[in-house]
Simulated assay, not measured.
Amino acid sequence: MVVCPDKFAGTMTAEQAAQAIADGWRTGDPSATLTVLPQADGGPGFLDAVEAGVGGRLVAVATVDPFGRPVTAGVLLVGDTAYIESAQACGRGLLDAGELDPLRASSYGVGLLLAAAVETGARTVVVGLGGSATNDGGAGALAALGAAPVDRAGLTLPYGALALRDVVGLNARPRLRPVNLVAAVDVVNPLTGPAGATAVYGPQKGLGPAQAPVLDDALTRYAQALRQLPGAPADLAARPGGGAAGGLGAALLALGARVESGATLVRTLTGLDDAVSFADLVVTGEGSLDQQSASGKVVSGVAAAARAAGVPCLALAGRVSLGATGLDALGLVAAYGLVDEPGGPDQAMIRPGPALRALAARVATGWAGVGNGQTSASVGWIKQRR
């Protein structure tokens, strides 16, 4: 059996969630043999998952959070490749709930982190994208690289997404040594439009309904400014993955990056597909299992790998918003939510680890009770439990 969840955003890292599931499963089925491989999708936990999979040397880098306060982030060096995690410089996890402000939050710290990664001499830099508190399209990151957005008078604009209403161009080309850039994205949303960064993810960052059209228009203007960079795609605003991390994906695309699924990359580096091929069950999970789970998130990738190997896959989540049809579409035979367990949402937030262990133990007991590894019987039992 393989245990391979993503983080439970705001409550548990992927490693903590994986350990809780494994501990609970062993309680419910002491005979189970478990392989524990925490996953990530480019967002928080990306660097930890990559390091667990391939090792490397972690270098501490001084940078700043979305409001310019000092923080320390990491650059993971593996051969001639450097890995960084944008959430370590612009993530929601760096802020208190009351601080969320996508109008002002800046990705400047990611630019500092990217520059540090390039200056290690790496030939390839992989940027994990996801979990951001920003909506500035990577404008702050480019400013840190010497390419700040400017208005018609040539004046440098303030940091944050709102100021991009007045953008007409950049004051210079980004100062960055030649390097192969990879944007490891957690979602495939474009920069703008009804499926874009602002419309879909802005509310998670504190954006009000009346503000969304204003910021989406600002990012449309900003995309036009980015197209001035040599090699920037003509359809930048519509490119899949450009909306990742509040539009940071679009800035990387303008710098010549290629887009890859962060979840697929981590699956490969951790050897998940090989582990799944020898398993009789796969257990994954995340904080909220919903419609967005199919847009490049860990659960969808894990379920796809399990389906390809003919192995049943179930999910344990903080909250499950999908019905039977949605679960089938993802490739899951079942999903269980912590908020539906005794104690409900309070326990899920206050004591998420013990709650997840208890849920895993209950599910494991039922699984072991139908034959402990006999796939057909187990799948039938799980479908009945939906």
Results as ranks from 00 to 15, higher is better:
residue 1 M to E: 03
residue 3 V to A: 01
residue 4 C to W: 04
residue 5 P to A: 01
residue 10 G to Y: 05
residue 17 A to D: 10
residue 20 A to E: 09
residue 25 W to A: 07
residue 26 R to A: 13
residue 30 P to N: 02
residue 31 S to M: 00
residue 37 L to A: 14
residue 41 D to V: 09
residue 43 G to L: 07
residue 43 G to K: 06
residue 46 F to Y: 12
residue 47 L to N: 07
residue 47 L to D: 04
residue 51 E to Q: 10
residue 51 E to H: 06
residue 52 A to V: 03
residue 52 A to D: 15
residue 53 G to W: 02
residue 58 L to A: 09
residue 59 V to Q: 10
residue 63 T to K: 02
residue 64 V to P: 00
residue 68 G to R: 14
residue 71 V to F: 04
residue 83 Y to K: 03
residue 87 A to D: 10
residue 87 A to F: 05
residue 89 A to K: 06
residue 90 C to N: 14
residue 98 G to Y: 06
residue 100 L to G: 11
residue 104 R to K: 06
residue 105 A to E: 05
residue 109 G to C: 00
residue 111 G to F: 01
residue 114 L to E: 06
residue 115 A to S: 12
residue 117 A to Q: 03
residue 117 A to E: 00
residue 124 T to A: 00
residue 128 G to W: 07
residue 129 L to H: 12
residue 140 G to E: 06
residue 140 G to S: 01
residue 141 A to D: 11
residue 147 A to F: 09
residue 148 A to K: 12
residue 149 P to G: 09
residue 156 T to C: 15
residue 162 L to W: 13
residue 168 V to P: 02
residue 171 N to T: 10
residue 171 N to I: 10
residue 180 N to M: 11
residue 181 L to R: 08
residue 181 L to F: 05
residue 181 L to W: 12
residue 184 A to W: 09
residue 186 D to A: 04
residue 188 V to L: 13
residue 189 N to I: 06
residue 194 P to M: 05
residue 199 A to Y: 08
residue 202 G to T: 02
residue 206 G to Y: 03
residue 207 L to V: 08
residue 211 Q to I: 00
residue 215 L to P: 15
residue 218 A to D: 15
residue 220 T to C: 02
residue 227 R to D: 01
residue 239 R to Q: 15
residue 240 P to E: 12
residue 242 G to M: 01
residue 242 G to K: 04
residue 242 G to L: 02
residue 244 A to N: 07
residue 246 G to I: 05
residue 260 E to M: 03
residue 261 S to A: 10
residue 264 T to I: 11
residue 267 R to L: 11
residue 268 T to G: 14
residue 268 T to S: 14
residue 272 L to G: 08
residue 275 A to I: 10
residue 276 V to C: 07
residue 277 S to K: 07
residue 278 F to C: 15
residue 280 D to S: 12
residue 282 V to T: 04
residue 288 S to C: 11
residue 292 Q to W: 04
residue 296 G to Q: 07
residue 299 V to Y: 04
residue 302 V to K: 11
residue 303 A to E: 03
residue 304 A to R: 13
residue 306 A to Q: 10
residue 307 R to V: 14
residue 309 A to K: 15
residue 313 C to Q: 09
residue 313 C to S: 06
residue 314 L to P: 07
residue 315 A to T: 04
residue 315 A to V: 03
residue 317 A to N: 08
residue 320 V to N: 14
residue 328 D to W: 03
residue 329 A to D: 09
residue 330 L to N: 06
residue 333 V to A: 12
residue 334 A to D: 15
residue 335 A to K: 09
residue 337 G to P: 04
residue 342 P to T: 08
residue 343 G to I: 05
residue 345 P to L: 14
residue 345 P to C: 06
residue 346 D to E: 13
residue 349 M to H: 12
residue 353 G to P: 07
residue 360 A to R: 15
residue 361 A to S: 14
residue 365 T to L: 10
residue 366 G to N: 10
residue 375 T to N: 13
residue 375 T to V: 13
residue 377 A to V: 15
residue 379 V to P: 08
residue 386 R to P: 03
